[in-house]
Amino acid sequence: MRLSQKTALVTGAARGLGRACALRFAEEGADLVLLDVAADIADVPYPLGTPDQLEATARLCRERGASVLAARADVRQQKDVDAVVADALDRFGRIDVLVNNAGIAAPSGKAVHEITEDEWGVMLDVDLSGAWRTIKAVVPSMAKQRSGSIVNISSTAGLVGYRYFAGYVAAKHGLIGLTRAAALDYAALQIRVNALCPGQVREEPTLEGRMLSEVARSLGVAPEDQETAFLESQPMNALVNPEDVSSAALWLASDDARQVTGSVVTVDGGFSTR
């Protein structure tokens, strides 16, 4: 049990990679704070996680032996995030791991000059500033503990460009920058901050993720065609599975990575090395 006696807060935990990380952490002995907006957001052109999906993640974690605090919050609102963190500290006494997974893939599918102010704003507010807000909320308690691991889920889009995804690419690049700066700020307090960059992740029905579908839709192609296109550009010729990403997150969260901070870990089958 690599996370026994630890408490992990996962954002965007209702489905997809957030759910994958939460379940994996529960299996490794962690207690969980599950945070999700569990509602749709204006300007985001696809359905986001739901309260039922969040509750489902909580139930799956409990079945794996975890104690769970599930809470709805929008990472665009500092006070919402602060309230969840305060509750989490009341309930569990400490937060050892923060996984900043909440993120949106769209609005996308436009060239840079075509993006509207609102579209640009919501993308950066969720995908970049959301992580900054949760870090602000958890760092004071991690500082008192003199320990903590923060894993920011960035993307290969944080390392290379993608056509018609400027907002997403800019936010995910920004998240890597935030990771590196925060790693330096908090190294002396034994708080580690790392970024994880998954490539295109296969959609697994039990996780109810939407990322690949939304990328395909934004580009106006069928999800199968998007998969095929990605496979051709992937040196290992396979899409990344959710558990590949949660395994890397588990490692960064655990004491096995006690000397790892400020690093950018790619889980992309070699995609970004081209």
């Binding site: 006696q5 207690d31 104690s67 500290l89 009341d90 309930r91 569990f92 006494g93 400490r94 308690s141 008192k144």
Partner: peptide
């Protein structure tokens, strides 16, 4: 056992 061994947060509340 896990629940009963879990310290409260630093400001000293009752849980």
């Amino acid at each position: 056992v896990r629940e009963a061994s879990r310290a409260t947060r630093h400001d000293g509340r009752l849980r």
